[in-house]
Design a protein around this nucleic acid. Structure first.
Length: 488
RNA sequence: GGCGGCAUGGCCAAGUGGUAAGGCAGAGGAUUGCAAAUCCUUUACCCCCAGUUCGAAUCUGGGUGCCGCCUCCA
């Protein structure tokens, strides 16, 4: 079996056959750092994180490059609004981006080039395109000539002829008027007064959006790479233009496989900054949703399909994760004290049944990264382990039969790790609201209730429990006689 | 208008020709003084119509509905 992925370029599922056997070069379109990242970004990067982890797990040497666009109109606009500089806005959001990705358990890219630090490559590429007649300059701007590009539109299925009528309606303004064709796009934008700018053979200015990716791919990974990643909203025009630029310059295919993730929707509509219906990653995490819950939420759907975000779906994921997390954590319980081997090198020979589950997991991911099916395997592996976790919680000791679950647990930990799912160190109850009863008060009430229960005065006991419940405190009577509590 | 995608149980979601994974919710059971939590069991003929086939959720044609892209966007 080999991994097959749906290639946007051909609209078909194709096997991954690395250009260099054993190695996979991946370029992932990153963020424009004008603001905080939201769940749309989270989904995209979680999904690609799983792709990367899976390839590594399968023994491939992956080089993962993800860019940062740190020069762009929106960053400039933000800087103007807040009276700071483009650098200040960029730096702040890059830090936030990295912190958010780390909080989500996403592996950092091997290299993370920034547009402002790749200007030599960008200028060189524009120069080549101009020399080849693929680009033209006009009043300090440089544009790419789409009519001269072989196969323009092949990624997005667009045909220049049939688009023209529609597009012509948009030609307006000075910049549009300079273009030879409405679909021509800027490689270099001449600086307007007061804007940050960089020197170039065409005068002071800054790079267009698309050109940085073409330049970075070439600088970091070479003229042709294995996989190019991004959100489905980047197919046109961004990736279409990247292909046009790179292939006009090199004459070689930019990437073998183009993968695009579906959008996160809210109430059936795409989550986006412009619609204002977004939730930032940090706001969600701060609200008490764990990174693992979010990951489970994302991976329960296939990566190419739209994913509807809402409180109900999120709650379902949280409940699901509670079970899976409990199974993952059971091996570390003092009573069993199992140890997981290193994620990347399984150190055990699975039984035929476990081997079957493992194969099912692999087959699922091999089939265009079907994480939903892969999760089904995880839940099945987890079931007896959850049962064990529950028995341990009730104070039972593991039976000799439970020893047989050790391998199952190891397999679960290993496979869950491929999806980036890991037991959390501890379920930290969020530091809590002011105004509620203090811990000592709670303990005192629990003690009162214990006494009432001892006297079989259940009316009083239940009254005390209800009283605490009104403060969001849930009591849990353990079989051992101890009463624990949690804030809900 | 052009291009692309999607429609599966109460909700989410796999499944691309051989008789419907998994999660959440619900129901029944175990446990509990009662709860909570937990564990076990259990719940579908797959948007509509026509066709191909021994056989279709899965293929073909038509219809209906929804979404994305065509401007910055993960």
């Amino acid at each position: 079996m080999t991994l097959r992925l749906t290639n946007t370029l051909t609209r078909r599922s194709e096997p991954l056959v690395p250009l260099v056997p054993g190695q996979v070069s991946i370029y992932c379109c990153g963020v424009t750092v004008y603001d905080l990242c939201h769940l749309g970004h989270a989904r995209s990067y979680i999904v690609w994180d799983v792709l990367r982890r899976y390839l590594i797990w399968r023994g491939l040497a992956v080089t993962f490059v993800q860019n940062i666009t740190d020069i762009d109109d929106k960053i400039l606009q933000r800087a103007t609004e807040e009276g700071s500089s483009m650098e200040a806005v960029s730096e702040r959001n890059i830090s936030a981006f990295q912190a958010d990705m780390a909080a989500l358990g996403i592996l950092p890219p091997d290299r993370m080039p920034r547009a402002t630090r790749c200007l030599d490559g960008i200028r060189a590429l524009i120069g080549e395109l101009e020399a080849k007649g693929a680009a033209y300059s006009a009043d300090g701007d440089v544009y790419f000539a789409v009519m001269k590009a072989e196969g323009y539109g092949k990624l997005s299925g667009r045909d220049l002829e049939s688009q023209q009528d529609n597009a012509s309606g948009r030609v307006s303004g000075a910049q549009e008027a300079r273009k030879h064709h409405p679909f021509d796009f800027a490689l270099w934008k001449g600086a307007k007064p007061g804007e940050p700018s960089f020197p170039s053979p065409w005068g002071l200015g800054r790079p267009g959006w698309h050109i940085e990716c073409s330049a970075m791919v070439r600088a970091e990974l070479g003229e042709s790479i294995d996989i190019h990643l991004g959100g489905a909203d980047l197919i046109f025009p961004h990736h279409e233009n990247e292909i046009a630029q790179s292939e006009a310059a090199t004459g070689k295919p930019l990437a073998q496989l183009w993968l695009h993730n579906g959008m996160v929707n809210v109430g059936g509509q795409k989550m986006s900054k412009s619609l204002g219906n977004f939730t930032t990653i940090r706001a969600l995490l701060a609200s008490g949703v764990s990174a693992m819950t979010l990951r489970l939420f994302v991976l329960q759907a296939h990566y190419r399909k739209p994913l509807d975000f809402g409180p109900v779906a999120l709650e379902a994921a949280a409940t699901g994760w509670r079970g899976l997390g409990a199974a993952l954590a059971v091996g570390g319980a003092a009573a069993v004290g199992w140890e997981a081997g290193p994620e990347a090198e399984p150190n055990f020979e699975p039984s035929p049944e476990l081997a079957r589950q493992r194969d099912a997991f692999v087959a699922a991911l091999d089939d265009d990264l079907n994480s939903s099916s892969a999760l089904a395997v995880l839940f099945e592996l987890a079931r007896p382990l959850r049962s064990l976790a529950n028995r341990l919680e009730r104070g039972e000791l593991p039976s000799p039969d439970d020893r047989r679950l050790e391998d199952q647990w190891r397999l679960l930990v290993e496979l869950a790790g491929v999806l980036g799912l890991k037991a959390e160190a501890s379920a930290t109850p969020a530091a809590e609201p002011v105004g509620g009863p203090s811990e000592a008060e709670i303990q005192a009430l629990i003690e009162q209730r214990r006494t009432a229960k001892g006297a079989k005065d259940y009316a009083s006991a239940d009254g005390l429990r209800d009283q605490l419940r009104r403060h969001g405190i849930e009591l849990i009577d353990r079989p051992t006689g101890v009463t624990d509590w949690i804030r809900k």
